[in-house]
Design a protein around this nucleic acid. Structure first.
Lengths: 159, 159
DNA sequence: GCTGAAAATACCTAGTA
DNA sequence: TACTAGGTATTTTCAGC
C-alpha cells in the first residue's frame, strides 16, 4: 500500500540498519544516520506508521526448535476463479505448518513454504490437510536439503 | 548446529514473544515469562550465544522500497557433484537480487526467491546473471501475483 | 536538555546433586 | 561444596517528551 511514501537517503540508512539489526538502539541508529536521537526516533515512528516498517522479529534457528524439515509445495488448483483462489488462501492461512503462500502465474497456482518436525509429520500434514483441501488438483513437493542463503528482507540501496 | 540445546517452557515463551515482536523490552519479556528482568536477560543472551536466536530484523514493505517484483526460480544444474553445487551456491550468494537459495531433492536442484524493481530489471538479471551462470541447465521462473501469507519464523509451541 | 524507564552489571539467595 | 538459576540492588544508558 505505501507506494507514495518519499524516502530520502537518511530514511534508507535507517531502514537498512533496522533490517540488519532490529534491536539497534535509537542513539546508535541516529549516529549512523548522522542525526541526533529525537529526529531519528520521529523518522522511525513515521516509517512504522506509514507501513514501510511492518514489524520486528527475532530470527530463530528452526533446527533448535525441532523443526528439521522445510518443504516447498507447488500447488495447482482445478479452478482459478478468484473466489476459489481466495478459498484456498483462507484454507492455508489456518495451517500453522504453512509459513508462506504465494500465488504465481503460469501452470503452478501457488507455492507454499512448509515446515515440519520430521518427515512423518510432514507426510501426515500433506495427506490430511493439503492434498485433501477443496479444489486442489495436484501438489508437487520438494524437500529442502540445505539452505545456503536466506537473507532477511530486500536490498536497501544507499541512494 | 544447536540441536542439543535444552529449551524449557520459559525459553519457548521468550522465543515466541521475540519472534512476534523483536523489539519487546526485556522487562515486558520478563513479565510475560514470569521472571524478573535480569534472569530473563540472561536467558536471552544465552539463546543468542547458542545460536537459537540468529538475529533481529525489521520487516520492510517491499513495495515501499521500490521492489514490486518477487519471483521464484526453479533451477536445474547439469552436474550435481558436490563441488558444482557449492559453486552455484557461491555464485548466487553474491547476487543481491537473490534473497533465498534452497537446495531441493528431485529433478529441481535449487529454488531461489528473487526480488526486482520491475519486470525489465528482472529479465535483465535473469539473462545476464542467472541463466548464464556456469553449470545451469534450465531455469523456470514464476512471477508472484500476490502473497497471501508470509509468517516470520516457525511455530513455537508453548510446551 | 530533562525525566522516567529500561538495560546491564555485580552481588546475593535458594535449591540440587 | 560446587553448580545452577532466580532475585535484589545499583549504575549507566536510552526512550520519549
Amino acid at each position: 500500500m505505501p507506494n507514495d511514501i518519499a524516502l530520502d537517503a537518511i530514511d534508507r540508512t535507517i531502514l537498512r540498519d533496522l533490517q540488519d539489526d532490529g534491536r539497534m538502539t535509537n542513539v546508535e541508529l541516529a549516529r549512523r544516520a548522522g542525526l541526533t536521537a529525537p529526529p531519528c526516533l520521529r523518522r522511525v515512528r513515521a516509517l512504522e506508521e506509514a507501513g514501510v516498517i511492518e514489524g520486528y522479529h527475532a530470527k530463530l534457528n528452526s533446527g533448535a526448535l525441532g523443526y528439521g524439515i522445510t518443504v516447498f509445495a507447488l500447488v495447482s488448483l482445478r479452478s482459478q476463479a478468484e473466489d476459489d483462489l481466495r478459498l484456498f488462501e483462507q484454507h492455508v492461512a489456518e495451517l500453522a505448518e504453512v509459513r508462506e503462500c504465494h500465488m504465481l502465474n503460469g501452470e503452478i497456482d501457488f507455492i507454499l513454504k512448509i515446515v515440519a518436525h520430521d518427515l512423518q509429520g510432514f507426510q501426515q500434514f500433506l495427506t490430511s490437510k493439503l492434498t485433501t483441501a477443496p479444489n486442489v488438483a495436484s501438489v508437487k513437493t520438494s524437500l529442502t536439503i540445505r539452505t545456503s542463503k536466506d537473507v532477511p528482507g530486500i536490498p536497501v540501496d544507499a541512494a
